[in-house]
């Protein structure tokens, strides 16, 4: 009986053992070493000579690094809401009975499959260059050409657009969640005479809040770690307008082998994301509805 109780209390622990092993073997060491490196001047080929806080100070003092931090915030706050709204809106429409729904779902997911493909780099530049397709379209409406690629104020926008365009993953997750919303609830609401939009906001949205919460956090994480867009399209330019933190980290770690510096930048990003996530988890109780919660 006692044994049984012990087992019952720790049953969950048994299920996470594989994860725990993976965590200790594959993650803990690289994690700890990157934290350690961040306080040193470790260079992969020149070794390390001193312990220092300089790497961290640099993030907030060196203009280039500070700019990267600011740009990363801008990018994340532009991309995440746009992407979530687009994904939810399209998922909502696709959830109706629609002819050729399979085709549309696949079509909308294709940009995500193309991902960081070299083809996207070629195309995106061709679309947004000074005499590109978009400016050609604007000209039809007598809108003067926009320097998407060369104007520091616009360049970040096209990187952001690339990610919004790739809303497929978020859409798929929303779709999976929407399918879980019982049809009965809609029918009940329909009889009550609630319009489609009211149904959406008063029934659908609350029911899928755990998944909205999931998408919010993961999209936030992905946005703060965004790398591909600037890497393949603008190379961080013009004038570092699209040099996001992850690009800086990549250049430091993989091109200049300044592991200490790269690690410190990564850990700054880590703390920021940690803070946002903690905040989100804390805010959950105000807006996220869980079916498994006690006393629901």
């Amino acid at each position: 009986m006692k044994k049984n109780k012990f087992l019952k209390e720790n049953m969950g622990f048994l299920f996470i053992i594989p994860w725990l092993i993976g965590f200790l073997v594959f993650k803990a060491y690289p994690f700890a070493s990157s934290l350690f490196y961040s306080f040193t001047d470790f260079h992969l080929f020149k070794g390390m000579s001193t312990f220092t806080l300089q790497n961290y100070l640099d993030v907030f003092q060196k203009p280039l690094e500070l700019k990267a931090l600011v740009v990363t915030f801008k990018y994340a706050f532009m991309t995440v809401p746009l992407k979530l709204v687009a994904a939810l809106f399209i998922a909502y429409i696709l959830n109706f009975k629609i002819k050729g729904v399979n085709f549309f779902r696949t079509a909308y997911y294709i940009p995500s499959i193309l991902g960081g493909s070299v083809a996207i780099a070629v195309l995106w530049r061709a679309l947004f260059k000074d005499d590109g397709l978009i400016n050609g379209l604007l000209a039809i409406f007598h809108i003067p050409a926009v320097h998407f690629m060369s104007d520091p104020n616009w360049a970040l926008f096209i990187i952001c657009l690339l990610r919004v365009w790739q809303f497929g993953s978020a859409m798929v997750i929303f779709l999976a969640a929407l399918k879980g919303v019982s049809v009965d609830l809609y029918e009940a609401a329909s009889i009550d005479g609630a319009g489609k939009w009211r149904q959406f906001f008063s029934i659908t949205v609350p029911l899928i809040t755990p998944v909205i919460f999931y998408n919010l956090i993961t999209q936030l994480v992905q946005a703060f770690q965004e790398f591909n867009g600037p890497f393949i399209i603008t190379a961080g330019g013009p004038r570092n307008a699209t040099t996001l933190m992850s690009l800086l980290i990549y250049n430091n770690a993989f091109k200049n082998y300044k592991m200490g510096k790269a690690s410190a930048q990564a850990w700054v990003l880590f703390v920021i994301l940690m803070a946002f996530t903690a905040l989100s988890f804390w805010s959950q109780k105000h807006w996220v509805y869980y079916a498994d919660e006690d006393g629901r």
């Binding site: 770690q225 980290i249 770690a253 990003l269 994301l273 996530t277």
Partner: peptide
């Protein structure tokens, strides 16, 4: 929390220690 934290560190700084491992 430890599990969630794994999301937050960019992979690129883990590549080198992982490679050595």
């Amino acid at each position: 929390s430890a599990m969630m934290a794994m999301l937050f560190l960019p992979q690129v700084v883990l590549n080198v220690p992982q490679y050595i491992m």
